[in-house]
Write a protein that binds this DNA or RNA. Sequence first.
DNA 1: GACCTTCTCACCTACGTGTTAAGC
DNA 2: TCGCTTAACACGTAGGTGAGAAGG
Lengths: 206, 206
Amino acid sequence: LGQYEHDQIHYYNQENINITLHNRDLWNRFHEITNEMIVTKIGRRMFPIISINIHGLDPDKMYTIELSFDQLDTHRWRYVSSQWQPGMKSDQPIQHLPYQHPDSPNYGRTWMKDTIVFPKIKLTNKIDHTGTSQVILNSLHKYKPKISIIDVILKKKIYEISFNETEFIAVTAYQNQEVKALKIRHNPFAKAFLDTENIKKEMTDE
Amino acid sequence: LGQYEHDQIHYYNQENINITLHNRDLWNRFHEITNEMIVTKIGRRMFPIISINIHGLDPDKMYTIELSFDQLDTHRWRYVSSQWQPGMKSDQPIQHLPYQHPDSPNYGRTWMKDTIVFPKIKLTNKIDHTGTSQVILNSLHKYKPKISIIDVILKKKIYEISFNETEFIAVTAYQNQEVKALKIRHNPFAKAFLDTENIKKEMTDE
DNA sequence: GACCTTCTCACCTACGTGTTAAGC
DNA sequence: TCGCTTAACACGTAGGTGAGAAGG
């Protein structure tokens, strides 16, 4: 049902739920190049944005959709000779609360009607940032976003999925020129930087 | 409990619900001067914005908050000699769907935590406007916004309130200079027009 | 003509980008 | 020095204002 073999899914009971990554092509391209994700002190939006479609919910039941970020290892990664390499061990992962989609809680009917997008979530490296839309991550560490569905009445998590294409390394500044170019081409807010040599090169490559 | 004598309240059962108008002072000033509210073809935000505080909900129960607009009479109003006067009878009121607050549905706990604001609602005079944030009104007719609370499980309206200060006459262009001046002073998006004689006059009056 | 509505416009708010230089 | 982070900045997107002319 539109699931890729390498998607990691966990059903907590026998629901027939199905989540697909809506902008999979862009995430694939991101993953192929080098998956750097900017985090800043004041918080930065993700690029690409997490965008999903859900099927198989009960239209009349109430659900909350959450986004959280699993730290994949305890390495501090380094960009050496145009490649990301695992560095020395770091501290334990920072604990962060899941980010609830702002339409939560809502009916299965509502969640299934349109593509669900997370454009407002902000990634930050500042511990004391307490805004509800802020998620705290460790720079130079590897993360994998995870989508969870919570049954509001049962107060239980009933489904979880994560996609390999959405893995990323948090950085405070881009290391790889191609990732930067990808964003400049696809994010309207970066349109001011379209006319540089790097972008033109990247565009002819594709 | 913070209710004014002239607020019109309707309890559908014995709940201890209490809603107060958060920006009552601004609405009072609006009502004293002349209560014109702009409606346009593409939809205009309200000024002032409806802004309320709710108490007495069950923190764990789920509610939907709605805003609707009751047409107060069937007159077509006219601005003559610096005053609004009832004109001839018009057609029957336009039917419009209530506007649901975008955080709906949600827990009583969430609704009571902060002031609830309706900045996104748009007033339009175009029948065929179907955006969910659009509410269709008849220009030159008198309206009174009404806030309703719906119990999500019972699927029943359990409370209704409307405030006299929030009555308004829908117009496609301001007739009264003082209302225009009030908006220019209080709405940041109108800051471009702050330095005119009318505004200065109004400011010294207050 | 009188009254009301619509359209285009300049001018704001609000905020999302990478750049660059400075900081640590 | 080196590697990474921060802050100020110019330059975009996106959208909310009344003004004033044009339309009905």
